[in-house]
């Protein structure tokens, strides 16, 4: 068969193939191991040398043609099989179908959920308490002496002499310990209030998550483990963590927890003031006076507590530089998360 006749035959066979099977038979007929086009290619080596290039070009052209015709027919067959009699072709299927009005959770809620997920996975149960608190739970039971300068660090909104807006989530610890016996492992999460002037890094209302673990023989070493696991879960397993001595009335020894700067990964930059570290959370061993206030014997029980700002975590995670954006609720902001 000469090339023209062969081409004609190929076109005809493919055109009249009425299903996948027939098309496959056609493919084998021409391109199979013993196929006609394949045979043509094999013949080249037996042809006289001066005819070979021409023969080669013709055979290759036929091979390519067959392949593309087969492909074309295949998509026709597919379309025929996928079509629906209920379908009406739109004038242009590339038009967008959605106006972008998707709903989002607030970025703080997303971070809260992530924090809760991590802590629940680590065995912490969620506990809660009121935002309007008694002075006793917010300060006294947490070993803040009356008229002590440590209270100055927590500018407080008062409702009456002994009622206030909680300045931290720690009162939940006291309430929970009053109602329960060790061992206990809880987190408290929610809004806290500070009566201070508002600027990009200070808000009168912000959010904390706080953890507490009490059992016999809980040590600072245990605290280091949990805090490090938590931070690495949140910021990635390469994050380094450092504990340095600090002071909180309700814990002793107390530790400020730093992590490697999220911006420079610890190399030193303007965000971390060239130290490579940024302050993330406060922590420490529960002060014996707190145990005494809830009727636990500090000779039997020990425990650790830690707390961190949720807004701050969100700021670090997403590069947000103004804490006021959270309660500002600008949808152009909220829709980015």
């Amino acid at each position: 068969m000469d090339a023209d006749a062969l081409e004609k035959s190929i076109r005809h066979d493919i055109d009249t193939a009425d299903g996948y099977d027939a098309l496959e038979q056609t493919r084998i007929k021409y391109l199979g191991r013993k196929g006609l086009v394949t045979g043509l290619l094999k013949d080249i080596k037996d042809a006289p040398p001066d005819e070979r290039p021409k023969l080669g070009a013709v055979s290759n052209k036929l091979k390519k043609l067959t392949e593309s015709l087969l492909e074309e027919k295949l998509s026709v067959l597919r379309a025929a099989q996928q079509g629906s009699r209920f379908y009406k072709k739109p004038h242009d299927a590339t038009l967008p179908a959605h106006d972008g009005m998707t709903g989002r959770r607030h970025v703080l809620a997303t971070v809260f959920r992530e924090l809760k997920d991590i802590f629940v996975g680590m065995g912490y149960t969620l506990a809660s308490g009121p935002m309007v608190e008694l002075e006793y739970y917010n300060f006294q039971a947490l070993n803040f002496p009356d008229e002590h300068p440590s209270r100055d660090e927590q500018d407080t909104f008062y409702i009456t002499d002994d009622m206030l807006l909680r300045t931290h989530t720690s009162p939940v610890q006291v309430r929970y310990m009053e109602e329960n016996k060790p061992p206990l492992k809880i987190i408290a999460a929610g809004r806290v209030f500070r009566n201070e002037s508002i600027d990009p890094s200070h808000a009168a209302e912000f959010h904390q998550v706080e953890g507490l673990y009490v059992d016999t023989d809980v040590s600072l070493a245990d605290l280091k483990l949990d805090v490090e696991i938590f931070i690495q879960q949140l910021f990635g397993s390469k994050t380094q963590v450092r504990f340095r001595p600090s002071f909180f009335p309700f814990t002793e020894p107390s530790a400020e927890v730093d992590m490697t700067c999220v911006v420079c990964q610890g190399k030193g930059c303007s965000v971390c003031q060239q130290t490579g570290w940024i302050e993330l959370m406060g922590s420490g061993m529960v002060h014996p006076n707190v145990f005494r206030a809830v009727g636990y014997d500090p000779e039997i029980y020990s425990g650790f507590a830690f707390g961190l700002g949720v807004d701050r975590v969100a700021m670090m995670k997403y590069g947000i530089d103004d804490i006021r954006l959270f309660l500002g609720n600008d949808l152009r902001f909220l829709r980015q998360f």
């Binding site: 680590m122 809980v218 070493a221």
Partner: peptide, 24 residues
């Protein structure tokens, strides 16, 4: 602890608490 160095204190094992956890 301060003079010994917080960074010299090892990491313990707090996962012996017998409470079980879940969200409310």
């Amino acid at each position: 602890a301060r003079i010994y160095g917080y960074d010299r204190i090892g990491k313990g094992w707090s996962f012996r608490c017998t409470t079980f956890a879940r969200l409310g």
